[in-house]
Structures are given as structure tokens and as C-alpha cells.
Design a protein around this nucleic acid. Sequence first.
DNA 1: TTTTAAAATGAATGATTGTTCATTTAATTT
DNA 2: AAATTAAATGAACAATCATTCATTTTAAAA
Lengths: 220, 220
Amino acid sequence: MSSSQTVKRGTSSAGGNSVLHRRRKFVTAATELFSNNGFHETTVKEIAEKAGASPGLIYNYVRDKEELLLLAIMEVLESYKKEIPRAVRDNNDPILRFSAALTAYIKVVADKPKATLLAYRYTAILPSEMRNKIKEMEVETNQIISDCIAACITAGYFRKINVEFISYRVVLLAHGWALKSWRLGKLHGVEEYIDGNLDLFLTALFTSKGRHHYRKFCKA
Amino acid sequence: MSSSQTVKRGTSSAGGNSVLHRRRKFVTAATELFSNNGFHETTVKEIAEKAGASPGLIYNYVRDKEELLLLAIMEVLESYKKEIPRAVRDNNDPILRFSAALTAYIKVVADKPKATLLAYRYTAILPSEMRNKIKEMEVETNQIISDCIAACITAGYFRKINVEFISYRVVLLAHGWALKSWRLGKLHGVEEYIDGNLDLFLTALFTSKGRHHYRKFCKA
DNA sequence: TTTTAAAATGAATGATTGTTCATTTAATTT
DNA sequence: AAATTAAATGAACAATCATTCATTTTAAAA
């Protein structure tokens, strides 16, 4: 079910994760090449070259060129799933948690915009089984944002709007940074992008109680 | 510079745009196939088949498979550039013009979501000369939105925010419908999507004068 | 009708490239 | 050291397809 028949993970001796390490080497090489030149435009030979190995060896660690794509996309999504909760955790106030989530999401996208676009460009070409895995991960990340928003609503800081709706808007916004920088070039820096959008969101969502509550943090 | 060496447009007789018509046939066939199955996954043979012709003939009307892609993308963008101003024109009040622009944009995207994604997926693989053409068209469409926003600001209805910034957010939002429906499936209908987002935008942007002014239209 | 030109065909071409596998190299074990 | 297993190589294979072009069909002109 997982990936490759010929290689068993964790053979012999102690820790024995070297197999996964070598696989990661191919995946990162692939990620870079796919991001810069596109999936179809990248040959397996090039990936091997960049990873410092021969083309044939790749097939010991991966079934397909396609699996390499799946792993590349998943690596990106996993970094989302790791970074965002980390940022949220550091805050207690619902509004600050929301802000942190939004900020973290945009920042992690801004950190590797091209890799982010991989998911947009190439999820479609994967078989549905793989597509579902990706979709699943996205939904999980969305959930984090949704929870923040819901908390703000129950605290009476945000007015009662559809949570999923706003959640998706936040996600789109974050991805928007990657989409934008590729298509329109830079109009402004990430910081401005974050601040501007956060301002827009809060203004649109605050109740008067929320607005009041938030003032405290601005002064500090 | 334009497209094909072997065919001159507007030969002989009267109107004589039949050449362009036959070319369009290939382009629409290509658009559909590229949208559904992807560019690389579509063969020239398939395009010819769908257009009811032979593969070889395509090359009388188009230099490349790539040019077919360019034309497919441009056809979509041109429909944007046509529909949105049409909707804006019917309104006089700045706020209504803005609303109309946003609504029209989302609707035209919702009308052919897959085609919209073509630009996202495949602009990157086109040679820079073609890419620039596409970018140019996008900027033109953006300009329409920007003008609406600027008008709202000078009328004192919107607070003074960066116009380009908001403009891009509107565009992203519209595209977001296509991106979403592909990735997350339908959470809600287009109408809800439009209303919800319009509400969010207006709440975030209104001055008190603007809010006041807008109430009139809501009652009517 | 005869001639000439345009439109259309589709089999053949040529180049590309993912994948395999017989073979070599390196590491482990006995 | 010898034997055995794992890791790695890279040339060869097979399939795919964009593109071409000699040929046929259709239309227009003389």
C-alpha cells in the first residue's frame, strides 16, 4: 500500500532510517525541479543528477515519477500542518490565535511560494487515491483556522458568520501570496500583505465587543 | 509575428473570416480537452478528432500545440474583459458599480471554472513572450476593478486603503471560486459565495458615509 | 471542361523519455 | 578471505506523440 516493493524500511541494525533519508534526497531534488521547471518538463534523469545518483536507483525508493510528485506535494502540506499549530499554540486570546494562524499561514507560503504552487498545478494529474490524500491534509489544516474563528465567535468577538466560509477565505488569501508573486510580481512585501489583510478581516468580522477587546493589544 | 505562415486571413471574396472560424473550432476543442484532461495529457490527435478534422490540418491554423494553449487561455481572459465592463456600465453609483464588478467577475469565473484554471496551471510553461501577453490582459481587467474602488474612495464611501491591494483581493476571490470548486468541492452555491464576500468587503471598506449611503439601495 | 489553387488527409518520422534489468560496486556476514 | 546480500549503475527498450509532407480531395478560376 505504501510505496516501494523492493526496499523495506528499517532493515537490520539500530535506528535504520537511512532508506527514508535517501528517499528524501530524491524528493527534495524533485520538489525543486518540479517547482522551477514543471513536472512534465523535468526528466527523471535530471532528478537523479540533482540527487547525485543514477536514474535507475530512483525506482528502488519510489514506484513512479508520479509518486515523487505526490511526495513533493505532501512534504509542502506537511510543513503547513506543522508550522501553523505551532504559531497558534503560543497565544491564548482567541483573536490573537486567529491573527497568529493567518500570519503563520501566509509566512509559510511565502517561505516557499513555488512549492505551494505545486499542489495547485499538479494535484489534478494524480490518481484519485493520491488526490484524496492531499485533499484530506488540506482539510485538516483548514480545521485549525476554523477552530480559531469559532472560538472568536463564541467569545463574542466576531459576529456570527459561516465559519467554513471565512476559513476558506483565509486559506485562499495565504495561497494568494504564492499565486500573486508568480503572476503579478511583487506589489508589496509580505509584511504589508499580512497586515493589510489582517486589518481587512478584523474590520469585517469584529463585533463592537471584539473591536474593543482588540484595542488593548494594539496599545501594548 | 501572429500565428501561421501558410494561411492568410481574409482571402478573396467578402467578409472572409472563415479561416478564423475554423481556427476557433480547434481552439474550443483544445480548451475543453486541456481543461478536463490537462495540456500534456491531451494529444493533438484528440484535438483534431474533437474538432472533426485531421491532426495535420491543425498546423495550417496554428504553429504549435503551445499556441493552441495560448489561444485557449486568451479566449477565457477575453471573456473576462468583455463581461465585466458590460456589467459595470449598467450602474451609476460607485458602490453599485463595485458590487456589479465583483459579482460579474465571480459569475464569469463560475460559468467556466475549469477554463479559468487553465491560466493558473499552464501560463508558466509558455514562452515569456506569450506569458507577457497574458499578464497584460490580466492587468487590464484588474484596472476595471481598481477604477471602481478608486471612485468609491473619492466619493468618500470607502476608507482610504491601497487600491491595488483591494483590487487584487477581489480578483483572487473570483478566481477562488474556480480554485475552490476544484479542490474542495461545493460548500455553498455561487450566490451565497457572492453575497457573503460582498458583505465582507463592504463591511471592511465602508466609511460611515458609505454605510449610510448603501442603506438606501438595500431597502429598495 | 480544363487548369490552378486551396484545403485536408493520415501514415511515416524523429525525438523524447519513463522504466527495466543485466551487470558492477560496496557493504555485511560467516 | 570467501560468500552473500544490498545498493547502485546506465545502456537498452518500448511506447508515446508532436510534427511533417507526399498525396488526395475539394473548390475556384479560366
